[in-house]
Computed example of a mutant assay.
Amino acid sequence: MNALTLLQQRSSSARLIEPAPSEAELNEILIAASRAPDHARLRPWRFRLVQGEAREHLGQVFADAAAVRNPDCSDSDLQRFKAQPLRAPLILVVSAVVVEHPKVPPIEQQLAAGCAAYGALLATEALGYAGIWRTGAHAFDRTVMRGLGMADNEEIVGFLYIGSRDGGRKTLPEPVLSEFVQTWTGN
């Protein structure tokens, strides 16, 4: 698949099964992701690999955080949170480490980490795998971030669930460019 076709046809896949990318393929994905635009070469992105039994530990972190957010959380909701990381054989937790910099405001550092996450998804698809970028309450929860060992200046950009597509590719509608493209004439 050429690069333009990849960009035009990439789609998220919520149903993911084994196999996940091999270690060598994962290295290729991470190298591609690390080519994201990066003002001042801060490399603000971080990747945490969650696979195997570690997914169960992440599920417990999700459940613990949910119980802190909502002490009245039902047992069935806590079980659902525990099971979330089991929806894919591999999760890349992408985060941004935001530092004070005279020329690179925090938003640029966050956007660079977001570009790295998207680069990882594109590389995943280019290698024949699939993924989906998830956020939700867990992505903004300091309890989850602490559970993942993040520093105070680090924040989650997203959870990339990665594996092999279970079923066919989702067909997306063609974009209607006029809905979001404008020509500015200076007037």
Rank of each mutant, 00 (worst) to 15 (best):
R10G: 03
W133A: 02
G163T: 05
V68D: 07
A151V: 00
E56L: 15
A67I: 02
L49A: 01
L26V: 06
P85F: 00
K103Q: 10
R35Y: 05
D75S: 10
G186Y: 12
S11W: 08
A14R: 13
D141K: 01
A66Y: 05
R165M: 05
L121Y: 06
K170S: 13
A130L: 06
P37D: 15
S34R: 04
E25H: 10
P175N: 06
L122I: 05
L172G: 00
R15C: 04
R48P: 02
C115P: 04
L160I: 11
D77P: 01
M145R: 13
Y118R: 07
V97L: 11
W133K: 01
P173F: 03
V157E: 10
G147T: 10
G114K: 11
P21H: 04
E108Q: 15
R146F: 00
E18K: 11
E23D: 14
F47W: 14
A3M: 12
R10H: 07
D152N: 12
L7R: 06
L7T: 06
L26C: 05
V176M: 14
E174S: 15
D72P: 02
E23V: 13
S34M: 05
V181S: 04
E23H: 11
R55M: 06
G186K: 10
L172S: 09
S74R: 12
D166E: 15
V94Y: 02
V144S: 10
D141N: 10
V181F: 11
E179R: 14
T135M: 15
G114E: 13
T143L: 03
V94P: 00
L160Q: 14
R169P: 00
F140W: 13
A88H: 03
D38I: 00
W133H: 03
T183H: 12
G168Q: 14
V181Q: 02
L30A: 09
R48Q: 15
E179M: 08
G114T: 09
S74W: 11
A113E: 14
G131Y: 05
R87A: 10
A88N: 06
V94D: 02
T183W: 12
A24C: 06
A123D: 06
A113R: 09
V68Q: 09
